[in-house]
Amino acid sequence: MIDSKNIIEVKDLRVHFGHGDDRVRAVDGISFSIAHGETLALVGESGSGKSISALSLTKLAPRQATYAGGQILFNNSNMLKLSDRELRKIRGSQISYIFQEPMVSFNPVFTIGWQIEEALKLHRKDLDRKAEIGRLLDLVHLPDRLAAAYPHQMSGGQLQRCMIAMALACSPELLVADEPTTALDVTVQREILNLLKELSEKVGLSTLMITHNLGIVSDLADRVCVMRKGRIVEEGATRQVLDDPQHKYTKHLMAAVPRLKPSAAKKTSPEEIDDEMKRWMPR
């Protein structure tokens, strides 16, 4: 049973690629939960399994992946056990995604309006779609004439706003943002993050925010999970983790944050972190 304060609970999730000896344990027994209205940040280095974990929430991981174990509890059902049809009902309407690269996340031959409409058509049948598209674009501070624009006619920042509008089209309960600002330049990043913050407060959204950027974490997240090699090495309230990291790897990540004043933190080598990981969670 899922705790009533949580919107989603992931328990000991394992996602593997391949079989036998060359099996890759992309996600190797992670557990976390997100409370209603909470923003959870998932941080960790490239290849640590953040995206696969996020996609697995609605079983969207690449076809080659096998869900080797665990549970994902959402609305009192285990997502891993649901049929394709039931999953499709949840995708987009209750859990929706924002991807890393807005430039390639839209279909190049259709207008933005058409693509937002696809989402509306699917999950919200009886409403004035034109007006709704206008409202959604307004929500992300874009003029509604952009509904008639094609993706290549817009900037990355604008597209990411459209992506957010599309994700919010069916008023989801959980928003999964997979590095929503990595492909954008710094000034635009700020705008998008502020927008996300504003919206999640306005709509009361729960968010899973995936990022490399600890700056984003400290701004937006209520809690943090630090991931490495398919496992969660540290978890806790944002301030607590950032101010007083327990695990060596977290310290390492903190030290890697570029600062204007070079920090005194000692650089840690990957081997040391490996050792530390073994100490913390022996297989």
């Binding site: 609605t58 969207l60 999953l87 499709r88 009902k89 949840i90 995708r91 987009g92 309407s93 929706s96 995604y97 991807f99 690269e101 390639v104 996340s105 839209f106 279909n107 190049p108 696809e118 989402a119 699917l122 999950h123 992506m163 599309m166």
Partner: peptide
Amino acid sequence: TYVQAAQALG
């Protein structure tokens, strides 16, 4: 990615 985005919409 646009195909994945479409799948994510359900």
